[in-house]
Amino acid sequence: MNQDPFKHEEQLKTFLDSYHVDIPEFQTEKPGKWQRVIQWLATPVKNPLDPLVETVRSYSLAGTLPIVLGLVIAVLT
């Protein structure tokens, strides 16, 4: 059962061996709550408006949004 499954997989072994990881320095204790909140806030996230940027939809939205807003304001006032 425990026969080496990689015995005849020399190329696969070479490939897997190329996975190097740089280990950062860190302590046993976790940082305080505030520091963790700051780290969380500083984590880069995907821009939720990305799908609207530089697409046909963004041009049509830019064109129609002022008209729609104008109509909404006209109806409300």
Binding site: P5, F6, E9, Q11, L12, F15, L16
Partner: peptide
């Protein structure tokens, strides 16, 4: 897992 990796890597590398 080994089969999948071999399939994925295929081509020139393996």
């Amino acid at each position: 897992a080994i089969s999948s990796l071999k399939n994925m890597l295929g081509g020139d590398y393996l």
